[in-house]
């Protein structure tokens, strides 16, 4: 089987397996949120002060909330097939537009956090493995365990105290300076300055995970026969370290990186709230507070889709990296 065929077969198998999962998640989420007390009409009525029975009925009819649950589910699924996640009464706009508006800043935050975590974590883990048992390994192991135990929102607040309140180096919230009139490079730099603290906060936990994983994986690979063979052939130094050990050691680490996408999305809810980062996580939090179920349902659905897609990509990457993984 050529590597192209292998990748195609993996893709097909994954796509087929994902369909029932996605359907089950949608149906489950839908019924879960139906169980919630109070609907969007209640919220709107509550905000406008007193509302008559008549007005409530009109609101419910407008959003289709007065239909039988199964019909509502059918409408939701039909809409989904056309790319619509429903209408948010609270924001007065389609949920898909609302989420797509918020998605880029969340993806920017997640991607920078994961890249930082991966680079720093793998480097630290590799150093730990090289010095296994000696003091750099011990010190880094303790640091990793500490990072692993930090609540994200708390370390975020502490970073704000240190770097924005005390030192005044970095902004404490938002994704860019509002109405700054900046353009080009200045705007980019302004955005990067806003990104530093939230991305660091989100990355810390995963730095620890990748460091520990890389350490274990490198130690395991270093003892394998092909490394000994390479050494016997006279390969040493950086060539052995990068081409033979690290490359093979990274296979389990990439698997975990895929698995963590869901975790990073969950972490983003908290981190975005701390840093008033206008992304999807904050949207989810606002949706809960406003009892805007259409939005909450959309965020939950879309984040599940992101997780499924990323896991597929990781599978493909591995089918390409490692011919031993059979597309059975």
């Amino acid at each position: 089987m050529t590597s192209f065929q292998r990748i195609l077969a993996t893709l097909r198998r994954n796509a087929v397996a994902a369909v029932p999962t996605i359907l089950a998640i949608v149906v489950l989420n839908f019924f879960l949120l139906r169980l919630a007390p109070g609907d969007a009409a209640d919220v709107l009525a509550g905000e406008s002060g007193a509302a008559t029975e008549e007005l409530m009925r009109q609101l419910r009819a407008r959003f289709g909330l007065d239909l039988p649950v199964l019909i509502q589910l059918k409408n939701y699924l039909l809409g989904l097939a056309q790319g619509s996640l429903g209408f948010s009464p609270r924001y007065n706009m389609p949920v898909t537009d609302l989420i797509l508006q918020r998605l880029p800043v969340t993806v920017a935050l997640m991607a920078s956090a994961l890249v930082v975590a991966f680079v720093v974590g793998v480097t630290a883990g590799y150093v730990m493995a090289l010095c296994a048992g000696r003091w750099p390994d011990r010190v880094l192991s303790v640091v990793a365990l500490l990072l692993y135990s930090l609540p994200g929102f708390w370390i975020g607040l502490m970073l704000i105290v240190a770097f924005s309140v005390k030192l005044g180096w970095l902004p404490s919230g938002g994704s860019e300076t509002i109405a700054s009139g900046l353009t080009g490079v200045d705007l980019l730099l302004d955005r990067l300055r806003h990104l530093v603290l939230p991305a660091t906060t989100l990355a810390l936990f995963y730095v620890a995970i990748y460091a520990r994983l890389t350490r274990a994986s490198v130690l395991e690979v270093s003892e394998l026969d092909f490394v000994r063979t390479a050494r016997a052939k006279g390969v040493g130094g950086a060539g052995l370290a990068l081409r033979h050990i690290l490359r093979n050691a990274l296979i389990p680490v990439t698997t975990m990186a895929g698995i963590h996408v869901g975790g990073v999305l969950g972490g983003a809810v908290v981190v975005e709230t701390v840093f008033t980062w206008p992304g999807m996580g904050r949207l989810a939090f606002e949706a809960v507070q406003r009892r805007d179920f259409a939005v909450l349902l959309g965020v939950l659905f879309l984040s599940s889709i992101v997780v499924i897609v990323v896991n597929m990509l990781v599978d493909l990457l591995q089918a390409w990296l490692d011919p031993r993984i059979e597309a059975s």
Binding site: T21, I25, L32, A36, L300
Partner: peptide
């Protein structure tokens, strides 16, 4: 295994927030 997979797909903290919001 399929059921486990379904419960593992949505980000667990987002799911947690939804569950707590649904129940008081």
């Amino acid at each position: 295994v399929k059921i486990v997979e379904i419960f593992q797909t949505p980000p667990s903290f987002v799911l947690l927030v939804v569950l707590v919001a649904v129940a008081q």
